[in-house]
């Protein structure tokens, strides 16, 4: 009888018109974001994009200048007190003179949990380090300790602020394996990163931030797709010939640039452009490459704010609810 969709579950995270200013600096400048329970979201952006500031506000460590933060429908302070949200911060936050197990046991006790800590250490992959002093742990081990500490309240939402900064490749892989295994159980994870490969490999969804705002939002494939397509380049005998070809292409809707005698085109119609260059011009040494997420990242974030979000119907900045 009832054919309407079930009422939407409470959002894990709901940011509305979030602003945070430090004097004249607008670290977060009108950020809106919805994260649904169970999503693994990468918060991707260059340094200074406002990622950490946003996370601090979600955790109630700082108050927004304007706007609203809801974590499972409650305020950050309530969510922290209830243990529904936990975080792995980038640095610090550890006492170096106590052991790994003591750190986790203490954190657990503060949440009223006096049970054994070994399961948490195992889930974070540091069971064998239980008796080691925190100060003797490597950066990667300390990061997994922070992860174990974040697990003790069994949070529904886990925030990670650039969690693998300073880790070696193996450390990063181990860390993400632990996070991924844990997220598979249905935990919502939001992680800030400026490692593109990390966002690409571990997130279901990428939220690109720059200048304190969301500039793109979608799956890794969508982000790449919209941002560029393919990159073509070809050489000409002289810069003048390259410029002539570039003018033609630009006027026909494929903006091209010239560096020396080399012409570079980013286009989603790479076949047509290649055919044109090889048949109607004197281009040689033609190369076609897939655009990396890095390209997408640079193009979307370096342009600063995209105020024309609704111009392009395929833009991944379209409603976040449309994805998944």
């Amino acid at each position: 009888m009832d054919t309407t969709a079930p009422a939407p579950a409470t959002l894990a995270l709901e940011l509305r018109g979030l602003h945070k200013s430090f004097g004249d600096v607008h670290a977060v400048d009108g950020l809106d974001l919805d994260v649904r329970p169970g999503e693994v979201v990468a918060f991707l952006g260059p340094n200074g994009a406002g990622k950490t500031t946003t996370i601090d506000m979600v955790l109630g460590l700082s108050d927004p200048t304007a706007g609203d933060v809801r974590v499972f429908g409650s305020t950050p302070a309530e969510a922290i007190a209830a243990g529904r949200v936990a975080a792995v911060m980038q640095t610090g936050g550890l006492l170096k003179d106590i052991t790994v197990a003591e750190t986790v046991a203490l954190t657990a006790s503060l949440f009223g949990n006096r049970g054994p800590v070994l399961p948490f250490l195992e889930r974070a992959g540091i069971a064998e380090l239980a008796g080691r002093r925190v100060g003797r742990c490597s950066g990667g081990q300390q990061q997994r300790l922070r992860f174990a500490m974040a697990l003790v309240s069994e949070p529904d939402l886990l925030l990670l602020d650039e969690p693998t900064t300073g880790m070696d490749v193996e450390g990063r892989r181990d860390f993400w394996a632990a996070i991924r295994a844990d997220a598979a159980a249905g935990r919502t994870v939001v992680f800030a990163t400026h490692y593109l490969d990390e966002a690409d490999a571990y997130a279901d969804r990428i939220v690109l931030v720059a200048g304190g705002r969301v500039v793109a939002d979608g799956s890794a494939a969508e982000i790449k797709n919209v941002a560029s397509g393919r990159v073509l380049s070809a050489s000409f005998a002289t810069p003048e010939l390259a410029h002539d070809a570039a003018r033609d292409l630009t006027s026909s809707g494929s903006p091209a640039e010239v560096r020396g005698t080399r012409l570079i085109v980013r286009t989603s119609a790479s076949d047509d452009v290649a055919r044109h260059l090889l048949t109607a011009t004197s281009a040689h040494d033609l190369e076609v490459g897939a655009s990396s997420l890095e390209d997408a990242f640079v193009r979307l974030t370096s342009s600063g704010r995209t105020d024309d979000r609704t111009d392009d119907p395929t833009s991944p900045t379209a409603p976040t609810g449309a994805h998944r």
Binding site: T10, I98, L106, S109, F111, G112, N113, D156
Partner: peptide
């Protein structure tokens, strides 16, 4: 409450001094 699966013990969260913390401080 509508929690996403993870059942949580209704343990009392210490609001004042935590005994575990005090013992750890003394050990330190």
């Amino acid at each position: 409450g509508a929690r996403g699966g993870s059942a949580r013990p209704a343990a009392s969260v210490p609001r004042g001094i935590s005994r575990t913390y005090l013992v750890l401080e003394l050990r330190r």
